[in-house]
């Protein structure tokens, strides 16, 4: 848990940091942040509650509690990470704990788009590459330098060709992942679309 939190802003092209590995398929957003922590009107205090129940169950040996993972910022996960609830509280909790990028075998759709919307790039790698990285981390510390433009991650003895959706990559490089202003720029097109939709004619309450 970082003491001071600064949210990502603007263009994102380089991320470097220590990796933290979390093993398991289908890790859902209820586990990332249990529902009781959703009783809040801002995201500020979510960082400390990330994986709360899993961490309590594992009594100090959960990845997010291990001393060697302190200050880590690149999360390595397996398949279908972030499935279940659409709660943005899940990536917000990870972000506030200190996670700046995630590399995994695959991600659930809504979780993925929530990560993009708050400035956490998610990369994919084949199953065996993820397992190799996780084995590496089990035996030592891994620092990665991620170069988003070239979809490359490097450490002193590893080079990884990361995969990321082209549209997501462009959004991070241009800063348009924070989508509101890009969407607002098409104000006239939005007005036009709103007037053209057939169901406006027969749904008078949509005045």
């Amino acid at each position: 848990m970082k003491s001071e939190f600064t949210p990502p802003v603007g263009k994102i092209s380089q991320i470097h940091g220590k990796c933290i590995s979390l093993i398991g398929n289908d890790i859902d957003t209820d586990r990332i942040i249990p529902a009781r922590f959703l009783k809040c009107i801002n995201f500020d205090s979510l960082g400390e509650s990330v994986f709360e129940d899993d961490r309590k169950t594992l009594k100090g040996i959960h990845s997010f509690d291990l001393e060697e993972n302190k200050n880590a910022s690149i999360l390595i996960v397996n398949s279908n990470f972030g499935c279940g609830s659409s709660r943005e509280h899940a990536p917000q909790a990870l972000l506030r704990w200190g996670i700046k990028a995630i590399i995994g075998e695959s991600f659930a759709d809504i979780f993925y788009s929530n990560c993009i919307a708050i400035g956490i790039p998610c990369f994919t790698l084949p199953k065996n590459s993820i397992q190799n990285i996780q084995n590496y981390i089990a035996n030592g510390i891994l620092f990665l330098e991620i170069d988003l433009k070239n979809s490359l991650a490097k450490s002193k003895d590893l080079i990884l060709n990361l995969e990321i959706k082209e549209s997501s990559k462009k959004m991070f490089l241009s800063g348009e992942w924070d989508a509101t202003s890009t969407l607002l720029a098409n104000k006239i097109l939005i007005e036009k679309k709103s007037n053209d939709l057939p169901y406006l004619n027969f749904n008078k309450h949509f005045c």
Binding site: E88, P91, T180
Partner: peptide, 13 residues
């Protein structure tokens, strides 16, 4: 389903 940032975008745009 959408996340909160997208709720913001729908409200705004």
């Amino acid at each position: 389903g959408i996340g909160t940032s997208q709720v913001r975008d729908v409200l705004a745009t």
